[in-house]
Amino acid sequence: MAEKYEFTWELLGDIGEGRPNLGNTTRVEIYRLMQFTIRDIIEKHVGVKETDEIFYEAGQLAGNAFYQHMITKTDDLNHFVNQLKTVLKELGMGILRVEEADMVKGELILTVSEDLDCSGLPEEGYEICTYDEGFISALLENFSGKPFIVKEIDCWCTGDRTCRFSAKAVNR
């Protein structure tokens, strides 16, 4: 069956044209309202595991498009990280910090504070930033050319006050 809404960057529309008065910002709770309601319904339809996979893949799709449109291609890790930090901060998506980075081994540990998805959420005892995982893995793959598996190891929702992600390159 043909897709109804195959994602392209253009699908985001001309926000300046469409929202001349309200502009291109909205409240975080509205973003979360949409995400968690969608997640709720999908979970009901396909279960938790598959929902996580859907969110991870959606994050990857977003990460790919984000890299292509928001990041200037570079081979320098520091330059890449600096760009990413700046754009994530400017867009109010979170405060990115690198704790460890070994591109030879293909291992990174990143944290995102004040994360758009989870910061301030009630403590639930499980990590929730599956979408972020996919998003980060796509960014790293676009930068390095190698696929990455990203796993959230600490999350606000697990009472950790910051989201920590472990990223490891996959040897094909």
């Binding site: 910090r97 690198v98 704790e99 980075a101 944290t111 600490d154 950790d160 006050r161 910051t162």
Partner: peptide
Amino acid sequence: RGYVLGSLKNLQASLRNLTW
């Protein structure tokens, strides 16, 4: 888990980021 431990983790994350 918990607020205090989360804050400690946050502090640790900041220090690790500073190290990097």
